[in-house]
Each structure stands twice: as C-alpha cells, then as structure tokens.
C-alpha cells in the first residue's frame, strides 16, 4: 500500500463515508450480540436481539452461568485440542507433500498434483455419507480423532506450499547434499525455516477452519462430553429459547479469541483466507 497523502476532496469524503457506513453495518451484529450477552435471557426471549441499552437489567450473569454449565468448558477444551492437533498435523503433512511436489521431478508428480486439485474441487458434502460409514467401521465415531482425521492432509495448504516452495531458491540444496545432509534433513533444517511465512498463513487458515468447523464434527461427535464449541452451542439452540444465557454468552466467548488473534496476526489471516486465489 502506498502511503502518499491524499487530499480531502468531495469524492474522497464520500468514499470515506461509504466505507464508514459499510463497516458500521458489518460490525453491528457483533455489537448486538455482545450487548445481548449482558441482558437476561428472559428479555432476549421476549424482545429478540436489538440495540436497546437498559443498564438497569444488564449484568454479567450470563457469563457466570457458563461456569455453572457442566459442559461448556469441556466443549471449549475439546475445540482447543482438536484445533491444535489438526493444525499441527495438517501443516506437517501438507508442507511435506507440497515440498515434495515442488522440489523433486518424479514420475507421478503431475498425476499427484492433479489429484490434489481434484480433491480441492469436490465439496465434502458429497462424500459425507460414505465417510460417515467409514468412521463407523474404523471405530472413530464420537472420538476427537474422528472429528478431523479425514481432512488432516488438506489439499489447499498442499497447493499453497507447493507454490511457495517453487518460488524459493534451490541452488544450495545440492551443496547441502554434498555436505551429507539427508533428504529429510534438507527439508527439516534448511527448507522449513525458509517456508516460515507460508506456515504462518496456513496455520491461521487451518486453525480458524477447525475452530469454526461444523458439519463434519456434527456428524461424528455424539455424546455431550465429546462435542466441540460450535456443535455444543448448536445443541443449546432450541425453538423454546430456554438456553439463551449459555447460547449468547457462550457465542461471545467463542469469537473473542479469534478477534484477539486477528488484531495481532491480521496479515497472515488475510493471506491464509485468500490462499485459494493465488495464481496457479
């Protein structure tokens, strides 16, 4: 971005106002739910979610009830465990595969790369039934591993790592070989540090995807103490609105860590989330 000073002209003012309005609209639902989390659940049920501020009834009671809920923090813990395991494993595997595709010329290279693209093109929804059957026969139903294992070797990060490594200089690889470095050693000690920026943005992409993931964990996780945060919250959503305290305060606590991360690692969020658009 260039930082040359722009003058305040009529058009720059109107553009500024337009984006100010847009930003306000986009932040409004967030504001509404934070405000709602401070209101008693009976109010929410009666009046719906709105921006009315009534300090007389507002309190942190909903947050306190989260601590009384037997499962909320179990779900939180499950979400953190799945997110960490999934992110670490998925980065390890996809960086290996992406690196292998970028560095070596071997017979199956193009075939495998084409298969990576095929996996990327087919939405999960189409194979969710046979995968569900497979999870039953592998005894992975209602386990944390089952909630992410089928997707741990992820095509988009493979694609991203491949593109990234293709752009790195490789002259010193042969020098390392002459010095007696193993092929795995070259990857672990020489190339991995060079791939650090790609790791950062892919870590964000995978962690965010996992934290917010819904459909697959909904299918695999069944018992209350195994659920992740999104699934647990969705079970609290009933047409009768009797769980609004947990639902609203729990939702706010689920998005706060992401927003904090976003403030500090914005660049990697944006790179990671738009990784699909990198030129092939």
């Amino acid at each position: 971005m260039n930082h040359q000073r722009t003058k305040w002209t009529l058009s720059s003012v109107s553009l500024f106002v337009l984006f100010l309005l847009l930003s306000a609209l986009l932040l409004l639902p967030l504001f509404a739910i934070i405000l709602g989390s401070l209101k008693p659940s009976t109010e929410l049920l009666r009046f719906g979610l709105n921006l009315n501020i009534d300090t007389a009834v507002m309190s942190f009671k909903n947050y306190i009830s989260l601590f009384k809920d037997p499962f909320y923090f179990t779900w939180y813990k499950n979400s953190i465990m799945i997110t960490v395991l999934f992110t670490v494993l998925s980065l390890l595997f996809s960086s290996m595969v992406g690196y292998g595709l970028a560095v070596y010329k071997f017979r199956l290279r193009n075939v495998i790369f084409a298969l990576v693209l095929v996996v990327m093109m087919i939405p999960l929804e189409i194979i969710m039934l046979p995968l569900y059957k497979l999870m039953i026969s592998l005894h992975l139903m209602d386990t944390l591993w089952g909630a992410f294992l089928p997707f741990v070797v992820a095509p988009l990060p493979i694609f991203f790592f491949r593109q990234y490594v293709s752009g790195l200089p490789k002259d010193f690889l042969d020098a390392a070989r002459v010095d007696g470095c193993t092929e795995i050693g070259i990857f672990l000690r020489i190339m991995m540090p060079l791939m650090a920026p790609a790791f950062s943005s892919m870590a964000i992409l995978q962690a965010l995807g996992s934290w917010n993931n819904f459909l697959w964990p909904l299918i695999v996780l069944k018992s209350n103490e195994m659920l992740t945060l999104p699934i647990g919250l969705s079970t609290k959503l009933t047409p009768y609105g009797n769980n609004y305290d947990i639902l609203i305060a729990g939702s706010v606590l689920a998005i706060i860590p992401i927003l904090l991360f976003y403030i500090f690692f914005q660049k990697y969020f944006i790179e990671g989330m738009t990784a699909g658009g990198v030129k092939g």
Binding site: P29, L237, S251, I258, F269
Partner: peptide, 11 residues
C-alpha cells in the same frame, strides 16, 4: 469471515 456460521446463525 472470522465468525463461525453457528454464531452467525444464532445472531
């Protein structure tokens, strides 16, 4: 884009 669809659905 950072917020889960579950939370968005609730809101």
């Amino acid at each position: 884009a950072l917020i889960s669809i579950v939370v968005l659905g609730i809101i």
